[in-house]
């Protein structure tokens, strides 16, 4: 009994010991920045991967030069000319001193615009990050990825068809 317990404890220790790096939350590593002027506010937009590719998630940071403490704001995304989404500027969950989007993926390839509406001590102002080029998605075409991912569904349907045929005589 004691041996079993020791063995189990050893296995658990080994598992969690090896898993420790995977338990740590990734820091936000900014590898590229762009400047946006929103009236009196200097905003630095940071990207954790560059260039940005469609569907590939990354961390975005939005940092006013003198901090976010006394400011609020709204981010509106445009895909081409079309408004795609808007949301209040919220602190990045893993970098709380700036606003940001965590592990966010741009859904489509093309030209995007980020519009920042910022309100702070110097009053409300608007600035835009224009011509953000989002490159083609990495990896296999989506059709192939979906085909691979829905094999369980088609397997289940095949099983149902077989079961259906075998139970037919009793159907009313």
């Amino acid at each position: 009994m004691r041996k079993t317990l020791l063995g189990l404890l050893g296995a658990a220790a080994l598992l969690f010991g090896l898993a420790t790096p995977a338990l740590a939350y990734e820091p936000v590593n900014i590898v590229h920045t762009e400047k946006v002027q929103a009236g009196p506010y200097d905003l630095t937009v940071g990207f954790s991967t560059w260039p940005v590719k469609a569907m590939q998630s990354l961390d975005f940071t939005f940092a006013p030069e003198d901090g976010i403490a006394d400011k609020t704001g709204k981010l509106t995304m445009f895909y081409g000319q079309k408004e795609f989404d808007d949301s209040p500027l919220a602190r990045h969950p893993r970098k709380r001193e700036v606003w940001g989007l965590d592990i966010h993926a741009m859904p489509a390839q093309g030209t995007w615009t980020f519009r920042f509406d910022i309100d702070g001590p110097a009053g409300p102002a608007t600035g835009e990050l224009k011509n953000l080029q989002v490159m083609e998605q990495p990896g296999p075409p989506m059709g192939l990825s979906w085909a691979i991912s829905t094999i369980p569904l088609f397997g289940l349907i095949a099983f149902i068809v077989i079961a259906w045929r075998r139970t037919r005589p009793a159907s009313r």
Partner: peptide
């Protein structure tokens, strides 16, 4: 694709299925 926290990525749907 990075740690995209989207529930409806193809592999996630594969896992849910």
């Amino acid at each position: 694709y990075g740690f995209d926290a989207v529930i409806d990525s193809p592999p996630h749907i594969g896992l849910l299925l």
